[in-house]
C-alpha cells in the first residue's frame, strides 16, 4: 500500500506544480481578480444604482461614474451570473434603489459563461437557494485548481483549438481590433452579421434561465428595488441576426415581467462614431446614451 502511494506522489507533485503555475500566470485567472475587484468595490461603496448584464452594459465603464452608480456588468456574464450578483447585493447592499438589468436578446442565448468560476468565493459566503450552478462547496473549492475546473479547461481547449486553426485571439474574444468608424459599410455589415449570428444562437431555449431571470426581478421587487430593463445600442445588422420569432418571444417575456422601466435603445444611436465595434459603445456613444437615460429615468450616471 505504502509503495503504491509513494509511486503516486511524484505525479501529484507535478500535477499541482503545473496547476499552481497556470493559476498564477493564465489570463483566465487574471480576469478573476479584475472580476472580483469590481464586485468588492461595489460591496464596499454600496451604490444606489447598479448595472447588471454582459459587455454591452459594461460599456458604462467609459463614463466617469457617479458615486451612486455601480457597474456590476461584465463581459460574458449571463443570466445566472446576474442572479448571483443580485444575491450578493441582497446581502451586502441595503442602500440599493435601482437596478439596470439587461433585456437584450443575446442574454437569452444558450451559451455557457465561464464567469461562474469567478463567483465561487462569493457563493461560499452567500446562500443560493436554487443552487443554479449545481455545485457543492467542495466543487467551489476544487475549481481553484485549474485543470479540475471545467470553465478553465474549456477556455484552455478553445485557445488550443483557435491556435491550431490559426485564428487571431482577438476574434475569439468577439472584439474587433480596428477603428469602427473607419471600417467600410460592407465590412461593417459582414462583421456585425457574424457577431450577431454567434451571439443569438439558441435564444429562449433554456427554460431554467427564464425562471432565474424572473427570480432576479422578483427578488429585487421584494426589496422595493426598482428594476429598469435596458437594451444598449448596437449595429442593426448585429441585431437583425436574431430571428423575428425569437425576438418576439424575448419581448413577450420581458413585457410580462412588469419592469418599472423598459428602455430600448437598441437602434437609437446609429452613427458609427459612437461605437467601439459592432455591438459596444465607445466613450462618446456612452456619454450620449447617459443623457438619454437621464431624460427617461431621471437617473444621472456620471459625475
Amino acid at each position: 500500500m505504502k509503495s503504491i502511494l509513494i509511486k503516486a506522489i511524484p505525479f501529484l507533485i507535478v500535477f499541482f506544480a503545473i496547476n499552481f503555475i497556470v493559476y498564477k500566470t493564465s489570463p483566465f485567472y487574471k480576469q478573476e481578480s479584475k472580476y472580483s475587484n469590481r464586485i468588492d468595490s461595489i460591496i464596499s461603496s454600496k451604490p444606489k444604482v447598479v448595472f447588471l448584464g454582459d459587455s454591452h452594459s459594461e460599456s458604462i465603464k467609459h463614463l466617469n461614474l457617479s458615486e451612486n452608480v455601480g457597474n456590476l456588468a461584465f463581459g460574458a456574464d449571463g443570466i445566472k451570473e446576474m442572479y448571483i450578483k443580485t444575491l450578493i447585493m441582497d446581502k451586502y447592499n441595503p442602500e440599493l434603489e435601482y437596478v439596470f438589468i439587461s433585456t437584450e436578446p443575446q442574454m437569452f442565448n444558450n451559451s455557457i459563461s465561464s464567469n461562474s468560476t469567478f463567483l465561487n468565493k462569493y457563493l461560499l459566503k452567500i446562500k443560493d437557494p436554487k443552487n443554479i450552478y449545481n455545485k457543492s462547496n467542495l466543487n467551489l473549492i476544487t475549481e481553484n485548481i485549474p485543470y479540475l475546473n471545467d470553465n478553465y479547461l474549456r477556455y484552455f481547449l478553445n485557445n488550443v483549438y483557435a491556435y491550431l486553426r490559426n485564428i487571431n485571439k482577438s476574434d475569439t474574444n468577439g472584439n474587433t481590433p480596428i477603428n469602427w468608424s473607419e471600417v467600410s459599410n460592407s465590412e461593417k455589415i459582414k462583421i456585425a452579421s457574424n457577431a450577431g449570428i454567434a451571439d443569438h444562437n439558441g435564444i429562449m431555449t433554456n427554460d431554467e434561465d427564464l425562471e432565474i431571470y424572473k427570480a432576479i426581478v422578483n427578488k429585487l421587487k421584494l426589496k422595493n428595488v426598482k428594476v429598469i430593463g435596458i437594451r444598449f445600442p448596437v449595429n442593426e445588422h448585429y441585431l437583425n441576426q436574431c430571428n423575428k420569432e425569437d425576438f418576439d418571444r424575448v419581448n413577450h417575456f420581458i413585457n410580462n415581467l412588469n419592469l418599472d422601466y423598459n428602455l430600448d435603445y437598441s437602434l437609437k444611436l446609429k452613427n458609427a462614431l459612437y461605437f467601439e465595434n459592432e455591438d459596444h459603445l465607445n466613450k462618446i456613444g456612452m456619454q450620449k446614451l447617459s443623457k438619454l437615460i437621464y431624460r427617461d429615468t431621471g437617473i444621472k450616471l456620471s459625475k
Binding site: 505525479f11 455557457i112 449545481n134 485543470y147 471545467d150 479547461l153 474549456r154 481547449l157
Partner: peptide
C-alpha cells in the same frame, strides 16, 4: 489515459 482524463473530459456539467 491520464492525459485524456484530465484534458479531454467533458466540460459541460456533470
Amino acid at each position: 489515459l491520464l492525459f485524456l482524463l484530465i484534458f479531454f473530459r467533458a466540460t459541460n456539467g456533470s
